[in-house]
Structure formats: structure tokens, C-alpha cells
Design a protein around this nucleic acid. Structure first.
Length: 696
DNA sequence: CGGTTGCACTTTTTT
DNA sequence: AGTGCAACCG
């Protein structure tokens, strides 16, 4: 079979490279994923490598999914788990390895995965447990420090040895207790997934050799963003044949704050001597003007390799820079441009992406797009699986799966409310840990406990009966959830009369339908835990809103980068850090710019509301860095302001008509919310942005 | 025990 | 401006 059709020379070289180490230095838009996919197809189709002998590591689950689909197409095969290579993120692969072989180092197969919320919750408990009440020590920063330590593979004991300041010594104590409690709960946090895999390979030679033999070929995408633990896993997995192929671009390394080290890619030739190095420098994505502007920005960095991307296509239109009065005007500019282009049929909503530095900036964009009636979706921010109602259900499921998971239990012990307050909960927990029973067992036998009120005993006992009934996991996840909802009366609990109740119910039912695609509970829980914000499915064609980080690996015909102001981007938090942090911000800018195919719009606002206060930031230095490839665009304020008359142009006593409620009189105005006393007698508080009111 | 109120804090970026 | 939580009250 021919897997080199439609590829350029460098790509063909990378695809057909023989055994041994291969380093692919792939610039933005140079067909990196395509090359990687074709190489895998080539190995399977032409080199008689079995799919399951191939390990392909991607940066997100979404990237893995896309690669699977493309591979299935190339090989004309059904996209089934049985046929496909091992594909996934480092975290996902590690979960599979640890479920199978973790017992060799004392990890139960039914471990649960703690996310950032769980970790901070457990840190709070650990702080209480070791008696640290200092309000200067915040769980969030402790979490960050533990994560940094783990990514550098520093355990609690080693951490304690190097702790000199009292603050560090306190963190060391917390770290130690956190680890103890985490083990007791049968849980691993995100960092543990990597760390414990390293330990597994290090301590159990047989297991390491088994997987080394299994993975005849290892391919790793986004290699510039690997951290120390991931690097260690790679080194341990690569066998004597050294069939390792890595792809990456040091210019696009944007995760050093998470322990990633782009020196891993720069040192690849040292680590694997004799490696074939292939450079992909032809860009197939962006216009010449966009590439030039991006190049001008990135070359201001000192720490970087040298390369020059080129395109066979024309220059296209220049990058447009827009100066606006404030953040609301900036958002309206974006919304009005999109809606007018969509209105004349020139573009579809999903041709557009709006990129910003921080999640907080999404809010104002949302409002403007809502007002302009442009459909949009947010990637990241509050993930679906981070919603309260979803986390509640997941906590129940986790507790059923791992009955030692105290974090999950304390979350749901009184949800829905069953008269078990913090005092009862604490007493129960103390008694439970003394007896040595797991939580569900202890709940069932709670009548034997001392120091609990009869009322608490009865509620906890009832909860125990329900949970105990699910112990045998012989049903499909969706059935388990549906029955659980029924037995704990969760939907009734959600129906609290607030306007959000309906959304929450809807979320719960989408959770049930999500669960339908899984045959067993463990797989479902794993998916939920490792789900990236970028992985969430999208519905109708819509504008994508996301952070610059989340945009990595994606491309759009038109990209708006908003908030290019000093203090926002580059972010103020990096100024006291150092030059290397500024260089990372600049790489982030490069990543954002190179997402654009045809049009790139950069905007900044002279004034912006931050922390509820108005601030005035000068334009980002990155704009000056872009040089001559950009054109400043004069804004005629009234030109687009006309499209968006002031939202609240109403007064008290104005008569309005609503399609839903009929005519009425405005009796109160609170920001964008108007209270209308309708002629029917009912009064409603409506948001003028959503409710289509018209004057009567 | 559960609800409400007021205060403090927030904004990097995420597996 | 919005949120989470701690301290209060019923």
C-alpha cells in the first residue's frame, strides 16, 4: 500500500524512516499530525507491525480520537478498539498500565482518580489533620507545590529534607499527610498517574520488560511539552531497538509552568544518538502575512532553535490590529464582524475562533455574542464534568466503585439533604476509620456506632442500604445512574424552583446519555476523570471561544486574538518572574497567531475592567513585535455601534410586550434585568438580553 | 441542622 | 463583578 501520496519530501522521509530513533521538528501548520498518522499506517500496512505493538501518545484525548479516525480511513479499517494501536495521552495510557499491573507495587486495581478540586479538598483535610491553621498557607498554592514536586519526582520525604523555611516545612508536613490520606482513599491524583508508572517500571523489572516488548514502536506528539516524569516513562519504555519517533516544535512549548521542559526535545539527539532528524518547514495553513507576523514575534526570543517556515501560497490580507475604547467595545467589534459576515453568507460561525489569555475574559465575549445572536461554544472554563450536579453523581459512582474514597463520600453524605450535618459526619468518619470497615460497610452497620443521634444513624443507614445495593457492578453505567437517581431522589432535589433547575436536569440527562456509550463503570469514570476541556463535543456550528492554551493544535479560517494589552498578555503575573517566562508568553502568542488560516485580527482595549476596577493598560509589546505585516484599522465607533443600541433603553412604567407572557408594565430595572408586571397579573424578572421584549 | 448574609478574594495557562 | 466561605441566626 502507498502511504506517501500527497506528502512532501520531508514528510515522506519521516513516514518511511526505518527502525531507530526519529526526531521530527515540525513547525506550526506543517502537517505534523498527517505525517504521524501516515507513519503509523505505513508501519502497519507496509512493515507488518501489529497495531497493538504501536504506542502513540498525543496531547489530548481529542487528538487521539482524530488520529484514530484518520488512521481507520487510511487503512480502510473499521475504527474499533481491537484493531487500533494504543493511543492516548500519557495520563490515559498510564491509567491502563496501572489498572493492569499496579498491584505489583501495591496499587489496587480499583483506584479512583482525583482531579484538581479533589486534591485541594484533600489538602484542606490534611491541613486540618496536621493542625495547620495559618491562613497564609492556601490549599491552592500547596497543591501547586505538591504538583511541582511530583512532576520533578520528589516525594514527601525528599521534600522535607530540602525544606528550610518554616513555610516549606509546613508544606512538607501537609504533603506527607496528603499522601497518607490519598492512599487510604484508594486514589491517585493526576501527577501520581505518571509518577507511579515510573515507580512501577523502576521497581518491577518484569513489568517494564513486558511493556517494552509489547511496544515495538513508540510515537510521541507534542514532545516539547513533556515533563520529567513523562520523559522518564519514555526512557523506560524504549527497548534496545530504540524505535522511538517524536514530533514537536520548541517554538510552541507553552506548558513549562506545568513542569514541561522543551529541552527534552532539544536533547533528543543526545539521548538517542544517531537519530534521524527531519525538519518540516513548509506551512500549509496560513497566509504569508500571518506567517510573517508570527515569525517576527517568535524571533524576538533568545532561547530557541533557528528555522523559517515558508508557504507556497500568497501573502493574503495583512494582519489587522484594532484599538478599542474598552473591553465591551472590543467584544462588540468581534461579535458584529462575525454576525455581519455570517449574515451575508461569506462565512459560517464555525469558521471563527476567539482566543484570549485568561478564562475570565470569556464572559464579556459571551454577552456580546448572545446579543448579536451568534451561536458560540466555550472550550474550557467550567467543564461539563465540573458542574455541581455532575460531580455529585460522579461522587456517588466513585464511592460505589472505591468504597474507601472519603472525598467522594463527604461530598455526597448530605446531598440530597438527609439531615447529616458536619458534626455527625465527622463522628461517623472517626468511628468508621476505627472499625477498619470500608465506608459502605460502615454505613450499613451504622447502628453499632457510638456518639451519633438516632436521626443521623437512620439517614446514614438508609444511604448505606442504597449504596450496598449497587456493590455488584453487573449493570451498565447508564442503568446504574438512572437507578441511583431514582433511589436517592436526586431529580426532585434539583427541582428547587430556581431558573437553573432545568439546566441542571438537562445536564444530568446528558450524563446518562454519555454513560450509554460505556459498557462498564470503571471505563466511564476514567473517561470522566481524564476528559480534557478540549475534548467536549460540539453541537451546532458555532464560534469557538477558548484560551490560547486550549487552542494548541487547532486551526480556523478566521482568528480573533483579544486583550493584547500589557498585564493581560503578556500577563502581569510573569513580570516579576523572569525572562524565560516572558519568552513563554511570546511562544503562546506565536501559537495563537499560527492558528489562523486566512484572517487574523488582533485587538486591545484602552481600558478594561479588572477585579471590578477599571484599569488602563498600554498595548501589548507583542503588537510592536509583529512589525510590518500588520495594518492598524481605524475604528469608526458609530459604524458598528448602530447595530447594538443600548441594551437597556427602558424606563420604569414603560409598556412592553413579550411573546411568551403578553403585555405588561416595567416596575423595576436592575442592570440588564427588568421586572415586568404583566397584565395577566403575574410578574417576571427578565434579562433584556435574552427575553425578546418589544415596546407595546 | 440548614439557611442567610457579608466579607474576602479572585485572574494565568491544565492533564 | 462574581464567587466561595465563614460566621451568624432561626
Amino acid at each position: 500500500m502507498n502511504f506517501t501520496e500527497g506528502l512532501n519530501e520531508a514528510q515522506i522521509q519521516a513516514v518511511t524512516a526505518n527502525a531507530g530513533p526519529v526526531l521530527i521538528l515540525a513547525g506550526a501548520g506543517s502537517g505534523k499530525t498527517k505525517t504521524l498518522t501516515h507513519r503509523i499506517a505505513y508501519l502497519i500496512g507496509n512493515k507488518n507491525i501489529w497495531p497493538n505493538q504501536i504506542l502513540a501518545v498525543t496531547f489530548t484525548n481529542k487528538a487521539a480520537k482524530e488520529m484514530r479516525e484518520r488512521l481507520a480511513g487510511l487503512l480502510n479499517q473499521a475504527n474499533t478498539r481491537g484493531f487500533m494501536p494504543w493511543m492516548g495521552t500519557f495520563h490515559g495510557i498510564c491509567v491502563r498500565l496501572l489498572r493492569q499491573d499496579g498491584h505489583a507495587i501495591g496499587i489496587a486495581a480499583n483506584f479512583v482518580i482525583y482531579d484538581e478540586d479533589d486534591r485541594q479538598g484533600l489538602i484542606k483535610q490534611a491541613m486540618k489533620s496536621v493542625g495547620i491553621t495559618d491562613s497564609n498557607i492556601k490549599p491552592k498554592s500547596v497543591s501547586g507545590m505538591i504538583s511541582t514536586a511530583k512532576n520533578e519526582m520528589i516525594g514527601p520525604d525528599e521534600f522535607a529534607q530540602t525544606a528550610t523555611y518554616p513555610f516549606q516545612q509546613s508544606v512538607a508536613k501537609i504533603y506527607h499527610e496528603y499522601e497518607r490520606m490519598r492512599r487510604e482513599a484508594g486514589a491517585l491524583d493526576f501527577d501520581d498517574l505518571l509518577l507511579e508508572t515510573v515507580r512501577l517500571f523502576r521497581e518491577v523489572d518484569d513489568v517494564r520488560r513486558k511493556w517494552q516488548r509489547q511496544f515495538v514502536h513508540i510515537l510521541i506528539d507534542e514532545y516539547q511539552d513533556t515533563n520529567a516524569a513523562q520523559y522518564a516513562i519514555v526512557k523506560q519504555l524504549v527497548g534496545p531497538e530504540r524505535n522511538i519517533c517524536v514530533v514537536g516544535d520548541d517554538w510552541q512549548s507553552i506548558y513549562s509552568w506545568r513542569g514541561a521542559d522543551f529541552k527534552n526535545i532539544l536533547n533528543f539527539e543526545r539521548d538517542f544518538p544517531g537519530a534521524l532528524v527531519v525538519k518540516l518547514e513548509q506551512n500549509y495553513r496560513s497566509t504569508g502575512a500571518i506567517l510573517e507576523a508570527a515569525h517576527n514575534v517568535i524571533t524576538k526570543n533568545v532561547q530557541r532553535t533557528d528555522k523559517k517556515l515558508w508557504t507556497a501560497e500568497g501573502a493574503g490580507s495583512p494582519v489587522q490590529v484594532h484599538e478599542l475604547y474598552d473591553e465591551a467595545e472590543e467584544a462588540r467589534l468581534v461579535a458584529s464582524r462575525i454576525s455581519s459576515q455570517v449574515a451575508i453568507g461569506a462565512r459560517q460561525p464555525d469558521d471563527y475562533a476567539v482566543l484570549y489569555r485568561t478564562n475570565a475574559q470569556s464572559y464579556i465575549m459571551e454577552r456580546a455574542l448572545l446579543q448579536a445572536r451568534v451561536p458560540y461554544q466555550i472550550v474550557g472554563g467550567v467543564r461539563f464534568y465540573d458542574r455541581k450536579e455532575i460531580k455529585d453523581i460522579i461522587a456517588y459512582l466513585r464511592l460505589i466503585y472505591q468504597p474507601n474514597d472519603r472525598m467522594s463520600f463527604s461530598r455526597i453524605a448530605n446531598v440530597p439533604g438527609r439531615g447529616v450535618g458536619s458534626t455527625s459526619l465527622e463522628r461517623f468518619m472517626i468511628w468508621q476509620s476505627r472499625t477498619g470497615m470500608d465506608i459502605i460497610e460502615a454505613l450499613v452497620r451504622v447502628q453499632e456506632a457510638d456518639g451519633l443521634t438516632p436521626r443521623a444513624k437512620n439517614s446514614l443507614g438508609k444511604l448505606g442500604e442504597i449504596l450496598d445495593g449497587f456493590r455488584v457492578l453487573d449493570r451498565e453505567p447508564s442503568q446504574i445512574i438512572e437507578e441511583l437517581l431514582e433511589r436517592i431522589g436526586y431529580l426532585n432535589y434539583l427541582r428547587d424552583g430556581t431558573p437553573q433547575a432545568e439546566d441542571r436536569e438537562e445536564n444530568v440527562s446528558s450524563l446518562v446519555s454519555d454513560a450509554k456509550t460505556f459498557a462498564a463503570l470503571p471505563e466511564f469514570l476514567e473517561e470522566v476523570a481524564l476528559m480534557t476541556s478540549a475534548d467536549e463535543a460540539k453541537g451546532q456550528p458555532s464560534v469557538t471561544l477558548m484560551t490560547l492554551h486550549a487552542a494548541k493544535g487547532l486551526e480556523y479560517p478566521v482568528v480573533f486574538m483579544v486583550g493584547l494589552e500589557e498585564g493581560i498578555f503578556p500577563h502581569s503575573r510573569i513580570h516579576d518572574a523572569g525572562p524565560s517566562e516572558l519568552e513563554e508568553e511570546r511562544r503562546l502568542c506565536y501559537v495563537g497567531m499560527t492558528r489562523a488560516r486566512e484572517e487574523l485580527h488582533i485587538s486591545y482595549a484602552a481600558s478594561r475592567l479588572q477585579f471590578g476596577q477599571r484599569g488602563y493598560n498600554p498595548p501589548s509589546r507583542f503588537i510592536a513585535d509583529m512589525g510590518n505585516a500588520v495594518a492598524a484599522v481605524e475604528q469608526q465607533s458609530d459604524q458598528y455601534m448602530d447595530d447594538f443600541p443600548e441594551a437597556v433603553a427602558y424606563d420604569i412604567n414603560d409598556r412592553v410586550r413579550s411573546a411568551q407572557f403578553g403585555t405588561g408594565t416595567i416596575v423595576d430595572i436592575d442592570g440588564l434585568a427588568v421586572t415586568v408586571l404583566f397584565d395577566s397579573g403575574q410578574s417576571k424578572k427578565l434579562n433584556v438580553e435574552y427575553a425578546r421584549l418589544e415596546r407595546a
